[in-house]
Design a protein around this nucleic acid. Structure first.
Lengths: 143, 143
DNA sequence: GTGCATCCTCCAGTGACTGGAGGAGCAAGC
DNA sequence: GCTTGCTCCTCCAGTCACTGGAGGATGCAC
């Protein structure tokens, strides 16, 4: 079954939610292959491109860096290698995400505290400014 | 009480944990003032610079964008204005942070699920690759 | 006076895009 | 056939918040 038509970059964009400029960018950095072109020099994409772009998009949404996604894509196309590498990449990323969650949680508490204690008075007594200026008054974990 | 000596950029760096290059960068974009120089053209910082840089650093750690910090710094130096603006900035940021926390939590769950379900077999049966490739199998909230 | 650390400026690079200029292709309506 | 308006093309510059290197000057201890 040969490809009947292929979709334009706009259609691929609509189906994946990735902007045309970004798709072209992915092509330019080798994350997406150069697709065949129409007579009028337009990119024509097939289902395989849709899949690959979905993979990339999903990876980016999960916060993977492009290098990590590249590695995962390499693995994805040779299905008989053991998946230790994919596992390691995901595990490392999970650790990072968990650390970030802790940080961000502390951050939210600090901000909530700041907002709550601002009695909408003058800046001179505003805790938001104080909290940022004064280290001693800071409830943030990492100093 | 006039300033006795002033510290070098290296010392300021050590005390704040902000790299010299970054301090110079902050100066170049107007976030930090141009400090007086020594005879040998070195930057000499005083306590006020330490405070301001701490303010900036703290703001960045809390995830404020540089424009927001600039706005807060402007407020901080004129203490008689009402702090509605500072309050608004913090409130907006708090909302963003809370949204981010939710997203990141979902992400962690997804990643944990991915890692847990990888039976260290072959890539062909590895859920990490699957999860990234296949939209249907995805537990992630935003599609 | 001789190392060596620190400092200086300037400039280019990073990641992951984004947007604009300037032009060509294409489909629909008149 | 012609015009309108959208999509597409390439190329290039800009974004944010830094980071790092080149090439040279300064400062200080031994």
């Amino acid at each position: 079954m040969p490809s009947r038509s292929g979709m334009t970059i706009g259609e691929l964009s609509r189906r994946t939610g990735v902007k045309p400029t970004t798709i072209r960018f992915y092509e330019s950095v080798g994350m997406m292959p150069q697709p065949p072109r129409s007579e009028g020099d337009r990119r024509l994409y097939e289902a395989e491109h849709l899949e690959r772009l979905t993979f990339i998009k999903h990876g980016r949404e999960l916060g993977f860096e492009m290098d990590a996604i590249r590695a995962l894509l390499d693995l994805a196309v040779k299905p008989n290698t053991p998946c230790d590498t994919a596992d390691r990449i995901a595990r490392e990323h999970l650790a990072e995400v968990e650390a970030k969650l802790v940080r961000l949680g502390a951050l939210r508490d600090e901000l909530a505290r700041m907002v709550a204690s601002c009695a909408t008075g003058k800046v001179a007594t505003c805790r938001i400014i104080e909290t940022l200026a004064d280290h001693g008054r800071c409830a943030h974990a990492e100093h």
